[in-house]
Amino acid sequence: MLEFNKVSFGYDENSKILDELSFSVRAGEFISIIGVSGSGKSTIFRLVTGLDKPLAGDITLEGNKNGARLGQVGYMPQQDLLLPWRTILENAFLPLEINGVDKQTAYKQIKPLLKEFGLEGTDDKYPSELSGGMKQRVAFLRAVLSGNPLLLLDEPFSALDAITKLSMQEWLLDQWQKRKSTILFITHDVDEALFLSDRIFLLKNKPVTAIEEISIPLRRERTRKDLHRPDMLELKERLLSTLRSEVTL
């Protein structure tokens, strides 16, 4: 699905953020990228979406080596970035509109999805009339409607309150299983990463030369209780202590 092969990146040669980094993501996986602030998580996203180009190395997306990636990856930013002058329906329509889909066809496609995303009846509302959790769902819907099988979610729940966050996580797992998309998920919340992912990519050091891959020993059908299993607790402890050693105060 996605492959980084010895990718290097930095805004100038002397201070690289990524140095010969390699990893690969299989179709249908849920992968969390975790690391302390400034560890290069967002840089990886900018490279995957095509907003930035690597200084060296190859990025292969769906067999397309170093091809144009803008418009090929669904991206959900940290803030919802919904357009305040557009209704929810019109906001969801945006990626389709940019791809030249006509309004009628698009609306027919969007309306059942709104219902499925728990946004029924919000069609003609403006973003300012919705709660934070709902706005994030619209933002996720917009990423899904880009039609791309790979979705990048950049700390999508970090601005939500703790309880909303929990239910949004469960909701996201549901949606992901239903749509069989591939998700790359940035977070700095260890519990969130453990609960959601198939694998966790742990970023450490700077520049990032390698990632530590951690497979989560849970089956896909999981509940929050599974996080209390001894092996999970041990894993969490290990992740936290690694991250802590990375923090420079």
């Binding site: 979406t49 907003l51 418009g71 970035l81 002058w85 945006l94 880009s146």
Partner: peptide, 29 residues
């Protein structure tokens, strides 16, 4: 306009014209 939003438009495959007409103009009104 916010840079983040403009970049979001770009990740959707938007052209410069799309960003101008669908983002810069409405936000300028």
């Amino acid at each position: 306009g916010k840079r983040e939003t403009e970049e979001l438009f770009l990740t959707m495959g938007a052209t410069k014209k799309d960003v101008f007409l669908k983002y810069s103009v409405p936000i300028a009104l």
